[in-house]
Amino acid sequence: VYIRIANEEWNVYRRYSDFLKLHQLLCKQDSAVSAFKFPPKKKVGKKEKAFVEERRRALEAYLRMAINHVVQTFPEFTAVPVTKETLSKLLTFLNDV
């Protein structure tokens, strides 16, 4: 997925299961995250190009909502300016690999 914070841009390459684990972790930390639309898993046709692209876009939209929420509500984020560096340190999932 593609991430942009101010003038910084990068891609995060993860498997769907990694995003699901992140979603579950965030839901445990803040139940409000469970209301954000997380794209469902699909067993049949999951490698079709159109499906993969649609799910990528849905994951980007989900991450935008989740990251905005986390940055605004979690004390460890509200104390520092939001940059790629600070976000990557506090939420290591977003490190580019």
Rank of each mutant, 00 (worst) to 15 (best):
residue 1 V to Y: 10
residue 3 I to N: 04
residue 4 R to A: 12
residue 4 R to Y: 00
residue 6 A to S: 13
residue 6 A to V: 04
residue 11 N to H: 12
residue 14 R to H: 15
residue 14 R to S: 06
residue 15 R to H: 13
residue 17 S to D: 14
residue 20 L to K: 15
residue 21 K to N: 11
residue 21 K to E: 15
residue 23 H to S: 05
residue 26 L to K: 02
residue 26 L to T: 03
residue 26 L to A: 09
residue 27 C to P: 01
residue 28 K to Y: 05
residue 32 A to N: 07
residue 34 S to A: 14
residue 34 S to V: 00
residue 34 S to H: 02
residue 34 S to E: 11
residue 35 A to W: 01
residue 35 A to L: 11
residue 38 F to W: 05
residue 40 P to K: 11
residue 41 K to P: 00
residue 41 K to Y: 14
residue 42 K to T: 06
residue 42 K to Y: 00
residue 43 K to F: 07
residue 44 V to N: 06
residue 45 G to Y: 12
residue 46 K to D: 09
residue 47 K to N: 10
residue 48 E to H: 06
residue 49 K to M: 06
residue 50 A to Y: 10
residue 50 A to T: 15
residue 50 A to C: 07
residue 51 F to D: 04
residue 51 F to I: 08
residue 52 V to N: 01
residue 52 V to T: 10
residue 53 E to M: 10
residue 55 R to I: 03
residue 55 R to C: 08
residue 55 R to E: 02
residue 55 R to S: 03
residue 56 R to N: 14
residue 59 L to Y: 04
residue 60 E to C: 08
residue 60 E to W: 02
residue 61 A to R: 10
residue 61 A to K: 10
residue 62 Y to T: 04
residue 63 L to P: 05
residue 63 L to R: 02
residue 64 R to P: 00
residue 64 R to T: 14
residue 65 M to C: 11
residue 66 A to P: 05
residue 67 I to R: 03
residue 67 I to M: 14
residue 68 N to V: 00
residue 68 N to H: 10
residue 69 H to R: 03
residue 69 H to M: 04
residue 73 T to S: 12
residue 74 F to S: 06
residue 75 P to K: 08
residue 75 P to Y: 03
residue 76 E to F: 09
residue 78 T to N: 05
residue 78 T to H: 01
residue 80 V to E: 11
residue 82 V to Y: 02
residue 82 V to L: 09
residue 83 T to G: 09
residue 85 E to H: 13
residue 85 E to M: 10
residue 89 K to I: 03
residue 89 K to A: 11
residue 90 L to R: 15
residue 90 L to C: 02
residue 90 L to P: 02
residue 91 L to W: 09
residue 91 L to V: 08
residue 93 F to A: 05
residue 94 L to Q: 05
residue 94 L to P: 08
residue 95 N to D: 07
residue 95 N to M: 07
residue 97 V to R: 14
